[in-house]
């Protein structure tokens, strides 16, 4: 067994921080490059890529790229669309998937094991394989809106939200977490007279903070990064999300400064969301052993 002396304890700390710093640099440099490049004119941006200057705020800096990005594409609308679609999907997903997981974990009904296995098996199916059948399906589904009954969900928010609410991974995360909650808590609530739904929202959900944060972040990332699905189901600009909006910058002449400005703008909501939930997220990953 190694002996910890004051000397090698200091050394260990140095090594530990060196490794952590290196990892942080690897993750931060792309972000730094994006942010710095967004402030530089194209010529300088391309010239800087061969040196460390690419990561430094040096040279001719301005917010010109941002102004032009807003001119080229309706950035505000795309961010609004993405935040609306992502936010709604995350909230509905947390509610629906946690209810499903509650039922799989605590209620006794015939076939629940089989159905849970089938749901988990869907995790291995890549989205690309079901994209076309799903497209055909949603193009024919009915909807009752303000204008009465209509057919087909294309070009709408709902087509970007509803197919993504329930998914195997989120249900799996909740099932794992619920299984680890002490069973006596549920039994005590039952003896005290609580109904199953009361147990769900008065006992189980208040204790589900960490898994809610994990599921929310994972779902948020999936939804905010949506590209293929909105590309094929939304043709109208008014419903387009941020990732599809990136296309606007790759038509005719590519202005890399504007691309970087756009990317910086659409990264802000993701970072903000993660920073708010990171403590709970890390706690949950540590306690469930589930790596995202």
């Amino acid at each position: 067994m190694a002996v910890i002396t004051p000397d090698n304890r200091g050394l260990r700390l140095v090594v530990r921080y060196a490794v952590l710093t290196l990892i942080a640099i690897i993750f931060i440099f792309p972000l730094l490059f994006m942010g710095m490049s967004s402030l530089k004119p194209d010529q300088q941006l391309l010239a800087d890529t061969s040196s460390l200057r690419a990561f430094l705020p040096v040279g001719d800096l301005s917010l010109e790229n941002y102004r032009e990005a807003f001119e080229r594409a309706p950035v505000g609308l795309f961010v609004f669309n993405s935040v609306l679609v992502t936010g709604t999907t995350v909230l509905l997903s947390l509610a629906i998937c946690s209810l499903a997981a509650f039922s799989f974990t605590y209620l006794e009904w015939r076939g629940r094991g089989l159905i849970l296995s089938i749901i988990l098996a869907t995790l291995i199916i890549p989205f690309e394989t079901i994209a076309i059948p799903l497209l055909l399906l949603v193009s024919k589904l009915p909807w009752i809106g303000f204008e009465g009954l209509e057919w087909g969900w294309l070009n709408s928010y709902r087509v970007q939200i509803i197919p993504w609410i329930a998914d195997g991974l989120t249900i799996f995360l909740f099932v794992q977490y619920f299984k680890d909650l002490p069973r006596e808590l549920i039994e005590a609530a039952r003896v005290e007279g609580a109904s199953w739904f009361q147990i769900y929202y008065k006992v189980v959900m208040p204790l589900a903070g960490p898994v809610l944060a994990t599921a929310a972040i994972l779902k948020f990332l999936v939804m905010y990064n949506q590209y293929l699905w909105p590309l094929i189901v939304v043709q109208q600009e008014s419903y387009r999300p941020v990732m599809v909006g990136l296309q606007y910058f790759f038509q005719l002449n590519i202005a890399w400064g504007e691309v970087m400005a756009y990317l910086t703008l659409i990264t802000v909501p993701v970072l903000a969301f993660y920073l708010v939930l990171q403590r709970a997220f890390i706690a949950s990953i540590a306690s469930t052993g589930v790596k995202g």
């Binding site: 002490p182 006596e184 808590l185 039994e187 005590a188 609530a189 003896v191 006992v203």
Partner: peptide, 10 residues
């Protein structure tokens, strides 16, 4: 009314 070994308080 039931009292559990693990207390089971919320």
């Amino acid at each position: 009314g039931m009292v559990f070994q693990t207390y089971a308080i919320f």
